[in-house]
Design a protein around this nucleic acid. Sequence first.
DNA 1: CGGCAAACCTGCGAGC
DNA 2: TGCTCGCAGGTTTGCC
Length: 276
Amino acid sequence: MPELPEVETVRLGLEQAMAGRLLLRVLQRRPDLRRPFPPRFEARLTGRRIDSLSRRAKYLALHLDDGAAVLVHLGMSGRMLVGRQSNEPFGAHDHVVFDLDDGGRVVFNDARRFGLIDLTETALLSEHPLLRDIGPEPLGDAFTPTVLAGRIAGKSSAIKIVLLDQTVVAGIGNIYASEALYRSGIDPTRSAHSLKPREIDKLVPAIQSVLTEAIAAGGSSLRDHRRPDGELGYFQHGFKVYDREGEPCPDCTCREGIRRLVQGGRSTFYCAKKQR
DNA sequence: CGGCAAACCTGCGAGC
DNA sequence: TGCTCGCAGGTTTGCC
């Protein structure tokens, strides 16, 4: 489900609820998600304090005050929900419950269980196997046209596919890949190495603007995404092409309107006239 | 390395 | 009403 803007929205919501809080009790309600929970997950977390929260690509990190960190990936349908009462019954797919020292409760809920949770005791989170090979943050200073050009040089795959590759650039998923290519006027089927410098000069700010606007809107809520407080994001109303097959292209007057094609088994939405 | 399909899961909407 | 089918914001693995 969640791409960078949705995970960032979750981080912002959890920061309010969890930063500075002591974990009074942690309940793990099943043995695994996409992969097994770390050994002794509940016992190792109980009594420890959460200092701060950060995001890397689509991963959320809860930093403990001793340098350890809980890594959370929401997969397609994962949610981190705040505001549950401790006397409420658990819901379907409530997999982990974090009870905090101020009486607050945070629940990790994930119907499809494509998410994962890890606990690492090492301080160097950037060296974690799940994060080590991930590319630059698209909203960071290190993401420039020159950098992106270098990372896609020699890649013969379609640019849409390459933007989904987390080792090329972090955090872009199926929605924002289509939207960024539409904004920059680039045909999603073009091979990555065929992009000219002038096109990459447009693609980088297109990625940055669509992600920034989506964060400002609280992310996109299609099926599963909820902010931790239960509120919906509203950037889905800002989509120009995603899930708009057959609708008119907002930026031109072509007859066909928005088209859908399948790349790597996943839908791509685009305008054949605007995107070349 | 590239490309593709399948796998991991559940839920929902469309169509019959 | 109820069933089947296809598809869904992600990532990994295996095969050619």
